[in-house]
Amino acid sequence: MTIGAKNLTKGARELIAFRIGDQEFCVNIMIVREIRGWTKATPMPHSPHYMMGVINLRGAVLPIIDLSLRLGMKPAEPNPRHVIIVVQIGEKIVGLLVDAVSDILSITDDNIQPIPEVSAEFVRAFARGIIAVEGRMICLLELDALVQGNESEAA
C-alpha cells in the first residue's frame, strides 16, 4: 500500500545499472528476467555483426547481443567475468552481453535529465535520459528498438 502510494506520487522506479567499458547504462528492472554468467555462444550465419550467436537457456534458444557493438562502441571481448542480462522485450527474450552489473537504482522521474543533442546513432534509437548518481553519469536505455532492429536487419 505504502509502496504503491510512493510510486504513484513520486513516479519512483527501479533500474539495473551495468557497465560497458568505462560507461554506465541502466534499464528498467521490470524487463530483466535474470542475470547469468557468460557462456560461449553458437554463432549464427547471416546475422548482424552485433549478434554474437545463441546459447541454451534451460532448453530455450536465446540470442545474445553484444550491447557494446550494438550501441556503436567497440566489440566486446568476452571473458568469464562478463555477464549476460536476460531481458524480455515484447514476446521475445534476448540476452545482452555487458561487462558487469554495477548497481540497482531507485529513482524518481525528476532525477532523469533529458539527453543533450548529439549525433550518435544509438542515442536516437535507445537513449531515453541521463541520471546523475554520486558523481557518475548513467544513461537510461529503452530496448524496444533492439528486437525490431534485429528483424529489419536480418530480413
Binding site: T42, M44, P45, H46, S47, V54, N56, G59, A60, V61, L62, P63, K92, I93, V94, N150, E151, A154, A155
Partner: peptide, 18 residues
C-alpha cells in the same frame, strides 16, 4: 528447438538443438 521463438528465421538453418 525453435529459433524463431526468440530470434528470427535464419536462412540456411532449419532449427536449433541443444
Amino acid at each position: 528447438k525453435s529459433l524463431e521463438a526468440n530470434y528470427t528465421h535464419v536462412p540456411g538453418i532449419a532449427a536449433a538443438t541443444i
